[in-house]
Design a binder for these strands. Structure first.
Lengths: 338, 338
DNA sequence: CTGAAAGCGCTAACAT
DNA sequence: ATGTTAGCGCTTTCAG
């Protein structure tokens, strides 16, 4: 039933090792025998046994991907990221094992220690993530999506959220806005100390101060009702408000709707910029000027970093911050002079 | 560095096979030695090498999950399904390898033939899916989510979409509605001949006819503009319309909005029922009476079916149709008597 | 109830 | 440039 390497070797009139080397390219093979081997492989329909390979080479060619399940994370972003990881991994002849956050540290330890996977990608990293010590101790390379408080000895990658927050404000400032607000993630995200949410706040505040803008920050639950409430609160507390930065996929649309229902035109009376997936920004009734959440690129880069590490490269950067890219759309305009 | 079974055996003063059997339970072990073995395992931090295990036992304890990428599929549903598959697989001591549709038949063949996985779960099955012959020929069990034209020799599971379509109509009929319409998936879904979309149409039409209702079916693109257009078309072509069934997650909200903007109150003038994820139905401004898309249950059941097959059970049903469960919410009410 | 030992299919020294 | 062969770490007969 199953064709093995010795079958191929016999059929091609060579030794098993020659077949192995023909497949891996780890030593020179004469063009002629390589042809013969490849032909035999094709004719016999040979497929190397993954387990045997892993055992003999101590490489499974499988990466673990740990995805978050929790509230406040935008599902399409996770999915897009996962697809990008799988696609890129395949380009390097690797497969991807899917783990849920739920499995926790034990899950990571299990797949690493049983040699099921060669390396790990961990999403949704918290400032003081309990998995940090484990990842440091593990004998296998890993890449984290997001930044913990201290990334010493770890490899992290993410959008530069601080720069993204700054870019949104700078853009509004350039358009003449003097009073701005940030509508952010749900409170639990801040409580969890997810770094990226706080970074946005830092960037937002710093840029507002630097530009001499009046500013305020409002976390917001992921419900239309909450969006409405925040909109009302904003107008009450900052009557001169003309610029809003939104960092919360779930309520971007309801928030804009709420503003309009309150009699404010976007962008006529209020300019809006957001940090969100491009597809979301594009799809709204008023397309939103936004900094893209580059999930696909982060996924690709994460895999590439891992491959570099698996290749024994020592020159892998600890921190990779992807620069924000802004796309101007209809939602932000020059402030009307009263 | 790595602790192996012989280390454990030595430490516990038994043979390697005893350790193996203590772990697998495949032969009786005296309580006393089992204790000793377990203690040694714990002390040494032993983890069996996955590859070695797979090689010796010809079981990798890994399942493949193939997820779709194409247009017209609702991402959160896919994600929820995947999470449910992973969670359930873990309960059976299995892991999940993530594959994308993109990899195609070659991807399936690869992971199956290399013995990377023991079994496969395939989502988004088309009526005449090109993967069907392959899945039949594969030496490994598989479960398909969705129904092809002929499921002979394959194991399929899905919501009973025909019954779901019927249930929506029956519900509207019971509420006194006499003229109904189905707003369905984007045209490309029908062109692709995804069975579930057509089943809904069948159920919808059959139930409408059976109840003597006037009915019409309208595919609809996944954009707010398309929703608006369909709403207008509906009112033009079926002025007496009072009941609408929606089978299209993406446009449920815009469609209801469009109706209201056209002056129709939901459910005052128009009753709406939908086939969609519960979370979506709950989250709308007017919560929608709906048949749930039971992604989590489908995922769980799919894994259970595979486990049964892997266990050598021959009594695995070819077709599993999950009965629709309707939750009444605010969007459907008794027809107002003019 | 437990041990000994023969593989599982492949890779990577070590030879030539 | 190619062949020989000793493992990789575990499971599972076969023996007792």
């Amino acid at each position: 039933m199953m064709v093995k390497i010795t079958d191929v070797a016999r059929h091609a009139g060579v030794s098993p090792s020659t077949v192995s080397y023909a497949l891996s390219g780890k030593r020179p093979i004469s063009e002629e025998t390589r042809q013969r081997v490849e032909e035999s492989i094709r004719r016999l329909g040979y497929r190397p046994h993954a387990g045997a390979r892993a055992l003999a080479s101590s490489r499974s060619n499988v990466l673990a991907l740990v995805v978050p399940l929790r509230a406040g994370i935008h599902v399409p972003v996770v999915m897009q990221f996962a697809v990008s990881v799988v696609t890129t991994a395949r380009r390097y002849d690797h497969d991807v094992l899917l783990l849920t956050q739920e499995e926790g540290e034990e899950g990571l330890r299990r797949v690493a220690d049983t040699a099921l996977v060669d390396a790990l990608i961990v999403m949704d990293v918290q400032l003081h993530d309990p998995r940090l010590p484990l990842l440091r101790a593990l004998e296998r390379p890993s890449v984290m999506i997001g930044f913990p408080a201290s990334s010493d000895g770890l490899t992290c990658i993410d959008l530069d959220f601080k720069a993204a927050g700054e870019a949104c404000v700078e853009h509004l400032a350039r358009l003449g806005h003097r009073v701005v607000a940030l509508v952010g993630s749900p409170p639990e995200v801040y409580v969890r100390q997810t770094a990226f949410a706080q970074r946005v706040v830092q960037g937002f505040t710093a840029a507002a101060d630097r530009n001499g803008l009046a500013s305020a920050v409002h976390p917001c639950e992921a419900s239309p009702a909450a969006a409405r409430a925040v909109a009302e609160q904003l107008l009450r507390e900052q009557p001169a408000l003309t610029g809003v930065v939104v960092h919360n996929e779930a309520i971007l649309e309801p928030l804009v709707d709420a503003f309009e229902q309150l009699g404010l035109r976007v962008p006529g009376d209020l300019s809006v910029t957001a940090i969100c997936p491009d597809e979301l920004a594009e799809s709204l009734r008023v397309p939103v000027t936004s900094i893209a959440l580059p999930s696909a690129e982060v996924g690709t880069r994460a895999v590439e970093l891992l491959m570099k590490k698996l290749g024994g490269s020592t020159a892998v950067p600890e921190a990779t911050l992807l620069p924000p890219r802004m796309t101007e759309r209809a939602s932000a305009a020059r402030r009307a002079i009263a």
